[in-house]
Design a protein around this nucleic acid. Structure first.
Lengths: 233, 233
DNA sequence: TCCGCGCTGTCACCTGCCTGTCACACGACC
DNA sequence: GGTCGTGTGACAGGCAGGTGACAGCGCGGA
């Protein structure tokens, strides 16, 4: 289906990823080191790079920056593999331009889902999967991880951004708190469901005029409204 | 909620899993041996199998392969329980078609989350439960949790929504109050049966023009009428 | 090295709505 | 007409969700 480069020094994990991605029908090339990773990416022009943040030689952030600054690799999406509490915000944000991240330890299932999601988005053939989203007063540039409300840019954390995108992708479908925990935080997250509430609150605060797009369905969960007009109420 | 088969020879762990899964509302059947596990799976057709990798007779991988190759068990998801360091076996686990795995020692909480996630993801595949329902003047979007009557959206509480869906799914069949208590309120309904009446009343109030779809069968219970026309009276 | 800052998870408090229960009214069936 | 079953309105308690505050953590700057 897609060509993927895995840059990961831990051999077991590299094998696990390679095997399962191939099993899912992708072509995989793996590298142990950052430098080798960069070389492979330039040579192979993959659709996706899975990039460990901690590498023996060059740091993953450096690799990411290099890739993203290389015009010939513009088509390549970068997914960072990070340990909990690592600098996710800078990595995924505007600064480095990674397209998504997964927090270790992750389940293979989760990673595959994320890779699928990225591939789906970057396939321009498919309609409705634009990287540039316009929804009422809300505007989102997924690649740059930037968000505007009524033309005014707002700053979201990596987590808030992912929460917003997860809700948006399932527009007009209720998401239970535990479904959101899975898809936003990852399965291993040892978190109270009330944490979701808090982050929804923070997200709404920042969304200002677009805050009503995120609707509460009492006793069930949250829902991104189906069309901008419905939300005015 | 779901039916689960646990295949685990270590008695303590088996008990622990059984207890916690039942506590979470699932039905659990446990086996000590691989062969017994296969038999149980074929017999019970569970939603999920928790499968230890190290079993006294047949290995877990073998059990997994057998299950996954049996067409009648296609609907069953397999979660492998593996000991730490069996990296190779992780791979093998996925090779065999296991849907997920957990590394021992794992927290019960984590396992429950995984089981939930698997159930959630495999559920929508269920046929026959249309997501968009149109029935006379009544329209229901199950995924969005929204209801319209004659084009006008009405607001139902989570409970009322469940009640309506339960009645609708058993269209044209009388539901006793206690059956409704089971299905809408959950098994341990510690409630007066008259509570059902109250909620039917509230539901009818909100249903406006569709209120006659919910019929009273005196001395028995309630019934959702078979076709929209019957209800005009 | 220390301090401050931003992000995040948790908690406690509060409010409003949902919900279970009751008592009474009403209607059907005998 | 009597009785049983159901409809209905009122009410109190509880719970779900919004919200503000706080602590831990990692990072960056001094």
């Amino acid at each position: 289906m897609a060509k993927i480069v895995v840059v990961e020094d831990e051999k077991d994990l590299q094998d696990l990823l390679t095997y399962n991605l191939e099993q899912a029908g992708h072509t995989v090339v793996a590298a142990d080191r950052g430098a080798e990773g960069v070389r492979l990416v330039r040579e192979q022009r993959p659709d996706v790079v899975l990039l460990d943040l901690m590498l023996p030689d060059i740091s993953g952030t450096e690799v990411c920056r290099t890739i993203k600054n290389d015009p010939s690799c513009r088509r390549t999406a970068v997914v960072m593999l990070t340990a909990r509490g690592e600098e996710v915000d800078r990595v995924v944000g505007f600064e480095l331009g990674a397209d998504d991240y997964v927090v270790k330890p992750f389940s293979v299932r989760e990673l595959l889902l994320r890779v699928q999601a990225i591939l789906r988005r970057s396939h321009p053939a498919e309609p409705g999967s634009d990287e540039l989203i316009e929804f009422g007063v809300l505007k989102v540039d997924r690649q740059a991880h930037r968000v505007w409300v009524s033309g005014e840019e707002i700053e979201l954390t990596a987590l808030e951004f992912r929460l917003l995108m997860t809700l948006y992708e399932r527009k007009n479908r209720v998401q239970t708190r535990s479904a959101l925990l899975d898809d936003v935080w990852g399965i291993q997250a040892d978190i109270t469901t009330r944490t979701v509430d808090t982050h929804v609150k923070r997200l709404r605060e920042k969304l200002l005029g677009a805050r009503n797009y995120v609707e509460t369905v009492r006793g069930v969960g949250y829902r991104f409204c189906g069309s901008p007009d419905e939300a005015v109420a």
